[in-house]
Design a protein around this nucleic acid. Structure first.
Length: 273
DNA sequence: ACAGGATCCTGGGGGC
DNA sequence: TGCCCCCAGGATCCTG
């Protein structure tokens, strides 16, 4: 579910509620998340103080004092919120951290359990736990690097945008929305795009993501921000989820195809092959 | 080496 | 109402 704008919204929401708080106690559901929980983490986590909370791609990084990194990925249906302890526990809550000096707790709810929560001694340890390196943030991606990533692959451009090692944080919604904004057909092969077209796409990604963050992300099913509030960008979609509806630019019906294993939405007139 | 498909889960919606 | 099938914002492992 959550792509860069949603994760960024969660992080911004949580920051004022979490910074300086101490993790007092941790409780877990009987289910494992995508990554197996280690009991050895608990003495590290309990008693530590939250120093900072930041986003890297779709990952949420919580820096701890005196040391350590608590890393959360929301997967498809993850919700990371600060909630009053008095609020009854929702179903599918897999992790609860009591926060001292307050009547609130950090809750991780994840219906499909594709998300993960892990502890690492430092950022280096977290980095090395990943097989593939995360690519640059979209806002730091240079025209040259992006052009090269496209030119040396035979995958379609939609697949390239979903590749987290090319650019971190873009998912299915914002890949489709960015390609529409750039007026590039998602079937086009990376190696077939000109540098001018690559630059149109890169700028469209930055523009679309920036706008989506302003709207607090997109809530289609399960996504909520760090305080439980939904996003509003789903009302602004040009193509995602608009199959059969008229293109906002030319009235042509939006089409849906399957690309790179994901449903892909585009306007066949605005985004010609 | 690389591209594509299957897989991990639960729940909602449509068709019958 | 119920059942069955398909679909869903992601990452990773396996195969050809």
């Amino acid at each position: 579910m959550p792509e860069l704008p949603e994760v960024e919204t969660v992080v911004r929401d949580l920051r004022p509620m979490l910074i300086g708080k101490r993790l007092a106690a941790i409780r877990r559901s009987k289910h494992q998340l995508r990554t197996k929980w280690s009991n050895a983490w608990e003495p590290r986590l309990i008693g530590s103080r939250i120093d900072a909370i930041r986003r890297r791609g779709k990952w949420i990084l919580i820096d701890l004092q005196p040391q350590g990194l608590f890393v959360v990925h929301l997967g498809m249906t993850g919700q990371l919120t600060v909630t009053p302890c008095a609020t009854p526990l929702e179903n599918h809550v897999h992790l609860v951290c009591d926060l001292d000096a307050g009547a609130e707790q950090l809750r991780f709810r994840d219906i499909r359990r594709f998300g993960s929560a892990t502890y690492h001694d430092d950022e280096t340890a977290w980095n090395s736990a990943h097989a593939e390196d995360l690519g640059p943030e979209p806002f730091d991606l240079t025209a040259l690097a992006f052009r090269q990533s496209l030119s040396r692959t035979d995958r379609c451009v939609k697949a390239v945008l979903l590749d987290q090692s090319v650019v971190a944080g873009v998912g299915n919604i914002y890949a489709d929305e960015s390609l529409f904004a750039a007026r590039i057909n998602p079937h086009r092969l990376g190696s077939d795009l000109s540098s001018g077209e690559a630059e149109l796409i890169r700028r469209a990604i930055v523009r679309v993501l920036t706008r989506a963050i302003k709207y607090r992300g997109s809530s289609i099913r399960n996504y909520v921000g760090g305080s439980g509030l939904k996003g509003k960008f789903q009302n602004e979609f040009s193509v995602y989820g608009r199959t059969g509806e008229p293109c906002r630019r030319c009235q042509t019906k939006i089409e849906r195809v399957r690309l790179a294993g994901r449903s892909t939405h585009y306007c066949p007139n605005c985004q010609k092959v």
